[in-house]
């Protein structure tokens, strides 16, 4: 059991910096670190927005816009995925899936690994879905 815990704590994974988009190795259980390329802080916690928000939304994990939220952003960058249940405006750059639920609305360009817009949800913008090579 102890060996398993040591292996788990010592294991690492590849993460992408949401600022400079370059890949680096980070521990599996790490919740935040500093990018070795651009030296900016990177958080891997999920960002959940329940109310109103503006500016730039950046996370190494997932970004979730809850139902009823309103966001007028200058850009949304997420390492693992974006979920839209509210009203969101801004370009999305994501290495994971982008999901717009039936009560969500997204206006902005999307570049992601995959895209799913449920019936009832709305999306307006240019979309680029392609395998994004790690730099």
């Amino acid at each position: 059991m102890l060996a398993f815990a040591q292996d788990y704590l010592q294991a690492d994974r590849t993460a992408d910096c949401p600022h400079c988009r370059k890949a680096f190795r980070v521990g599996t259980v790490a919740r935040s670190t500093m990018c070795p390329h651009c030296y900016r802080g990177v958080s891997f916690d999920d960002v959940v927005i329940k109310g109103e928000c503006s500016g730039k939304v950046c996370s190494g994990g997932r970004v979730v816009f809850r139902r009823g939220s309103r966001a007028r952003t200058r850009g949304i960058t997420a390492g693992e995925g974006v979920e839209v249940h509210g009203d969101v405006e801004g370009a999305v750059l994501c290495r994971g899936p982008v999901v717009v639920s039936s009560d969500g609305s997204l206006r902005g360009d999307v570049e992601a690994a995959s895209l799913h817009v449920e019936a009832g949800g709305s999306l307006y913008g240019a979309v680029k879905i392609a395998a994004m090579a790690r730099q």
Binding site: V100, S105, V110, L115, V117, G120, G121, S122, L123, Y124, G125, A126, V127, K128, I129, A130
Partner: peptide, 8 residues
């Protein structure tokens, strides 16, 4: 996929 999308 490369293009403009209108969904809804």
């Amino acid at each position: 996929f490369l293009g403009r999308v209108g969904v809804g």
